[in-house]
Design a protein around this nucleic acid. Structure first.
Lengths: 333, 333
DNA sequence: CCGTCGCGTGAAAACGTTTTCAGAAAAAGA
DNA sequence: TCTTTTTCTGAAAACGTTTTCACGCGACGG
């Protein structure tokens, strides 16, 4: 527990000047052994901890990294958050987390808030703030953005190939013999969502299956939306034997819709999600999905940020998506 | 986007002293209309934002609240986090979130870290740091703790009645006619977990059902533990018709174990959880559970902390648990 | 017409560090 | 022994605010 002792008090107790104490603390210059000893003793005696605020003010560095997330209650974000947290710990930095609630204006305002607090960098996790704006921000403070494509001098982007993911998911279903494949899309303003839809279309086209508008419906990346949309799909009466949900949460909702109507998964309908949330191996049956290394993305974001701040080179290698086959998909009878 | 302009520059631009600018900013004293106008103009012209660091240093207040959580990746914690975040926004405070990973030593160290950063208060979300230690910390900085029972001058506790929750869950099963009721307990060092077990025993005793050690097994509050423990339980060969899982995540795991063995829920075995995580209404079938108002607890924690910091009175009313009956429990045939 | 009051204001001293600058002491070179 | 260098150290000036203190000034009552 840090005390109220100040560096000056330590200096007095040790009979040296404040400068000397500071030098010992930071290893800025050589100090004679006896003074060093006296100071070190005084430090433990007084139980001294440097005042980070004063340090920050002087150095112009706050040792804080701002993180903008969208919904702290979504497993998708919190996994990334955990990665960031783990990546930061031990570096002396701490994370100031604020959430933008998917609202671009709110996000921009939060960026301002973080800047006012003189954070040393901002990590922006997904969200739908326009890319150009991010680039503009990055002129003021180093930034790392996930789910965005833009890059610049002080801006790194980490993004997975969502088109490929959508393609792979759909292709998996096609390989199992399905040809009537429905899709519950994500939030249309997010490229993540539209890219997955594009991938879906590509796979269809490749297999020579005509795209059918009646089999695609607009979700919201959440369970409730999945439930609703699946019901909608079912009610349309256009038959389908497989469903590609834009993310796992949507898949959970759809799964429930099927359950309610006595439709068995995967016996009657195959279901595939996207993300591979921590809960997905434990659904009944365990969910087949496109694994997105969310945690690793978080760690990578943290590492990239640390490198950016320290002016060190850092090569981002785009995290790979991976088809994870569990038990909600099966070969068409 | 905040600029590099300082208060002194604003003062110069407006032809007044720094003190005057400060007074206008904080409304500390009356200032003549013309100077005020000049200053306000200079502020927007220079796009000035006060340096929070300097303010903090001077005022001895950092406008930051530290939050210690255990696992940012568990829905239980993130829901609380969301409540805290929402409760804080608009107050000018920001949340510095660190995680203790269930490790008391790590938790204590993190408290030190937060204190070094001169946070104005610390909210500690669950965790197994000893109560006395929390009390000790609270002598240095205002604290709010959830899942702990201790209170003091600068310490507020928010905790639900876990004994009652365990009792109610078990009683629900008993009311449905079950008499062979298994229990997968939580982490034994957490009172949350042991309290729920106590409640389980109480309900059993009340109903005149002898407590059977063979029907209780030690989980870890996570899905994987639930899966393992349910299998263990099944392998023991002691028959049971209902299972009370110490939390929802454990229930998810157990559910999967049953599914794997072709045991139907609720037809063959009734299952009840604890927490009511956001995902629980969307499991198949939707999980019967004891609803814990996690989000509200977060908001309450934030409000209590703000009140504590502002020296305002605040009455914490303990959040109520509630039996939420869905579809994983049914009357014994 | 002269003390007293209240109001608006600026100068300057904090807050707790880091860092430049220069001086003193010690070591090295001649 | 007398420079010249090298080490080590302290004084003092920052960093960008807030806040105390005191001062000038017009208004007030006597």
């Amino acid at each position: 527990m840090p005390s109220g002792a100040t560096l000056i008090e330590v200096a007095e107790a040790a009979g040296v000047s404040a400068s000397t104490v500071s030098r010992i603390l930071n290893g800025t210059a050589r100090v004679s052994a006896d003074k060093r000893k006296a100071v070190e003793k005084a430090i433990v005696d007084l139980n001294f901890t440097p005042n980070v605020l004063a340090q920050s003010l002087k150095r112009g560095q706050s040792m804080t990294i701002g993180v903008i997330t969208q919904a702290v209650d979504s497993p998708f974000f919190t996994e990334t958050l955990k990665g960031i947290e783990d990546g930061i710990t031990g570096s002396g930095f701490a994370a100031l987390i604020v959430s933008g609630h998917w609202n671009p204006d709110e996000e921009a305002e939060r960026v301002g808030l973080l800047m006012a607090r003189k954070v040393d960098g901002i990590i922006i996790v997904s969200g739908n703030i326009p890319d150009e704006q991010i680039v503009r921000f990055s002129e003021h403070v180093p930034m790392v953005a996930t789910g965005h494509g833009c890059e610049s001098d002080r801006l790194r982007a980490i993004r997975v190939d969502n088109v490929w993911g959508g393609y792979r998911a759909t292709k998996h279903l096609i390989e199992l013999g399905h040809r009537q494949i429905a899709h519950i899309a994500g939030i249309p303003t997010l490229t993540d969502a539209t890219d997955r839809l594009t991938g879906y279309k590509q796979a269809l086209e490749e297999a020579g299956i005509p795209y059918n508008d009646a089999l695609v419906v607009q979700g919201d990346f959440r369970e409730s939306g999945g439930l609703l949309c699946a019901n909608q799909l079912l009610d349309r009466g256009v038959p389908f034997t497989a469903l590609f949900a834009a993310n796992d949460q949507t898949a959970y909702g759809a799964r429930l819709a099927f359950f309610r109507r006595g439709i068995r998964v995967p016996d009657d309908i195959s279901l595939i999600g996207f993300d591979d949330l921590p809960g997905s191996p434990y659904t009944t049956p365990p969910l087949t999905t496109i694994r997105q290394p969310v945690y690793e993305i978080g760690r990578m974001a943290a590492a990239a940020m640390l490198a950016l701040i320290g002016n060190k080179p850092f090569k981002i290698e785009p995290p790979q998506l991976e088809l994870t086959i569990r038990e909600t998909t099966r070969r068409l009878r």
